[in-house]
C-alpha cells in the first residue's frame, strides 16, 4: 500500500523526506530543547554518559575484567563504533545492535550476569560508547551479509500495522514535517540513541522508541532486541547515513 503512495507522490509532488532533504529531529525542536542538548552541563543524558564511563573501567564478573581491560581508552577504541552499528555477529551468524554487543561482551568475556536491555547500567554503557561517536557521520557497516537485514527492515518500515493501520513510512516519510496536534512529525532518523526523552523522564534506546510507536498505532510490539527491531534499526541507520551522531540527544 505504501508503494502506491510513493508512485502517486511522483505525480503529485515531492515526498517530504526525499534524498538530500534529510533532517535530524534536532532541527525541528524548539530553541530551549536544542540548548539543553547542546550544553553538556544542562543535558540530562550526560548523567548516563558519566555513569557509563565509570562502568567502563569497573572490573566485573568471574574474569574480573573491565571493558577497558580489553578495549583500553574508549575515546580511541570506540570512536565511530556506534556510527556503524548494527553489525554482523560472527558467533551468532546474524545482525546485532550495539546494546546486544555490549551485553554479549559482558557475559562472554567478563563472565558477568546478563543485564536487562533497559537496565540503567546497560543504557549507561551504550550511552558512553555512543558518546565516542558524537558528531561523526552515520556510516553503516558495509558487510554484505547485512543487506538482507536492511531489506527486511525496509519492508517492515513500509508495512501498515495495528488498529490505526499505519506504517512507519506513512508518518515519517509521507507526513514528516506535518503537525500531529502539538508535535511536529520527524523524519525518523535514529541519529541520537540512547537519548534523553522528556516524555520518558529518562534515557532509553531506539527499540524503546519503536515500542512507543507500535503502541501508538495500536499494534502488537515486537519487543526490544527482537530481530524485527534490529532489522528496522539497520534500515533506518542506512537511511540516515551521513547525518551526524548526536550523543546524547535530547528529544521531547
Amino acid at each position: 500500500m505504501i508503494r502506491c503512495v510513493t508512485v502517486l507522490a511522483i505525480g503529485l509532488g515531492t515526498p517530504a523526506a526525499a534524498a538530500g532533504d534529510r533532517q535530524s529531529g534536532y532541527e525541528i525542536m524548539g530553541p530551549e530543547l536544542r540548548a539543553m542538548q547542546d550544553d553538556e552541563a544542562a543535558n540530562p543524558g550526560m548523567l548516563w554518559v558519566t555513569e557509563g564511563a565509570a562502568l567502563w573501567v569497573a572490573p566485573e564478573g568471574a574474569a574480573n575484567r573491565s571493558c577497558a581491560s580489553c578495549h583500553g581508552d574508549a575515546a580511541q577504541s570506540m570512536a565511530g563504533v556506534a556510527a556503524r552499528y548494527p553489525a554482523w555477529n560472527e558467533a551468532g551468524q546474524g545482525p546485532i545492535d550495539l546494546t546486544g554487543r555490549i551485553g554479549l561482551c559482558r557475559t562472554r568475556h567478563q563472565g558477568a550476569a546478563a543485564l536487562a536491555r533497559d537496565s540503567r547500567a546497560l543504557v549507561a554503557l551504550a550511552a558512553f560508547v555512543t558518546r565516542q561517536s558524537d558528531g561523526l557521520p552515520i556510516a553503516p557497516d558495509p558487510d554484505p551479509r547485512l543487506a538482507a537485514t536492511r531489506e527486511k527492515g525496509k519492508a517492515l518500515f513500509e508495512t501498515r500495522m495495528g488498529q490505526l493501520n499505519l506504517a512507519c513510512a506513512d508518518c515519517h516519510d509521507d507526513a514528516a514535517g506535518g503537525q500531529l496536534a502539538a508535535a511536529t512529525i520527524p523524519q525518523g532518523h535514529p541519529t541520537g540513541y540512547p537519548q534523553y526523552r522528556l516524555q520518558w523522564e529518562g534515557m532509553g534506546g531506539l527499540h524503546r522508541r519503536f515500542e512507543n510507536c507500535m503502541s501508538g498505532v495500536r499494534a502488537e510490539p515486537f519487543g526490544a532486541g527482537s530481530p524485527e527491531y534490529i532489522a528496522l534499526e539497520a534500515f533506518l541507520m542506512s537511511r540516515a547515513a551521513g547525518l551526524p551522531v548526536e550523543a546524547p540527544a535530547v528529544r521531547p
Partner: peptide, 14 residues
C-alpha cells in the same frame, strides 16, 4: 485487512 493489531485492540474498532 488489519495486520498485527495489539491484543487489547484486537477485533475492536476505533
Amino acid at each position: 485487512g488489519l495486520v498485527r493489531v495489539g491484543t487489547q485492540w484486537k477485533d475492536t474498532t476505533i
